[in-house]
Each structure stands twice: as structure tokens, then as C-alpha cells.
């Protein structure tokens, strides 16, 4: 039915090379400390799965972390928080410098706001790390989608 393993040699590239392992990641710092922290964990997750190399492509990612209020209680206090990492990315070909693919991935984790502020801080830190891992995985899915399609249509695209 047309499904082939993503990591099999021929799936993502004509000559069997693994394009996912030829990407150099350029993580932008974002506008404040939390964006930078989110970017850090997305970068580590991407490196865990794609390795650290300065190959043919450059993936530029600009992360941003935002926390939204939810569940307004009688004393006007949010009882839940939405932790969202949204990261816009551009994939460029190092040799020619033209932009191959751009897009945006969003990962959300909702956590309960415990009555003690340190509890909220701990859940917030944990939410940053877990959504960062999910955002990184989504980035890899987008890249795989691009390379698979790029292989179908001749390189002249």
C-alpha cells in the first residue's frame, strides 16, 4: 500500500544517503529567557535523533514559549495553564543557499496549577521539556515529509 520505512535507505533520497543526518541546526535565541530555554531542549532532542553534523542543509528554528490561562475559578484565578511551544523553521540548502522548505510546528501541554507556587514552577519546567521533545519530533516529521516529496519530484523543483 505504498508505505515504506522512513529510515530505509531509498525512502528519503535517490542515492540512498540519509538527508536527515546531513542537517546542521541553527537555533535562534527568541525574545526572552523562556524562549531560549524552550529552544535549548528542542535542539537537544533534535540532536539526539539526528546527530550533530554540519552537513548539506541548515535548519533554522526560532522557538517561542507562551503560557495561557484556563479554568478561571471564583476568585478569578486560573486553575490550569496551557504551555505552548510554537517554532517556525526554514530549511536551506547550504551550497546554493536557497530556501527549500519553511513552516511552523506547535506543541501544547496543559498542566494543572497547584495551589503552591513551587508546584506550578515545577510543572511549568516539566511542560517546557515535554513540549520541546514533542515539537522536535514534529519538526522531524515535517522534514521527512519534505524530503520524501522532494525525492518524488525531480530535483529541478
Amino acid at each position: 500500500c505504498g508505505f515504506t520505512p522512513m529510515h530505509a535507505p531509498q525512502t528519503l533520497s535517490v542515492n540512498g544517503a540519509q538527508p536527515l543526518e546531513m542537517i546542521n541546526i541553527d537555533m535562534k535565541p527568541g525574545k526572552d529567557v523562556n524562549d531560549k530555554e524552550a529552544g535549548f531542549f528542542v535542539l537537544q532532542r533534535l540532536r539526539d535523533r539526528m546527530g550533530t553534523n554540519d552537513g548539506k542543509y541548515t535548519l533554522t528554528v526560532s522557538p517561542s514559549w507562551r503560557r495561557g490561562r484556563l479554568g478561571i475559578s471564583a476568585n478569578d484565578v486560573a486553575s490550569r495553564y496551557d504551555g505552548t511551544i510554537s517554532a517556525t523553521y526554514t530549511l536551506t540548502d547550504n551550497k546554493t543557499g536557497n530556501i527549500l522548505d519553511t513552516g511552523r510546528v506547535v506543541a501544547v501541554s496543559t498542566f494543572a496549577a497547584s495551589s503552591d507556587p513551587y508546584g506550578v514552577i515545577a510543572s511549568n519546567d516539566n511542560a517546557i521539556q515535554s513540549t520541546a521533545a514533542e515539537a522536535a519530533d514534529r519538526l522531524i516529521v515535517k522534514l521527512a515529509g519534505y524530503f520524501a516529496n522532494a525525492k518524488e519530484t525531480p530535483a529541478s523543483k
Binding site: A107, S109, A122, S123, N126, A127, S130, A133, E134
Partner: peptide, 22 residues
């Protein structure tokens, strides 16, 4: 215990190797 008091399993926390959120 000070952290991990209000764990709320969702698809982001699901794949954490330590689900104690703290």
C-alpha cells in the same frame, strides 16, 4: 513532596521516561 503534586497525563508527558513531572 513539593513537585509532581498535580500530574495530568497527556500526550506530551506520556513519552517522558520519568512521568513524575518533577
Amino acid at each position: 513532596a513539593q513537585d509532581g503534586t498535580d500530574i495530568d497525563l497527556d500526550q506530551a508527558l506520556f513519552w517522558q521516561s520519568n512521568k513524575a513531572a518533577g
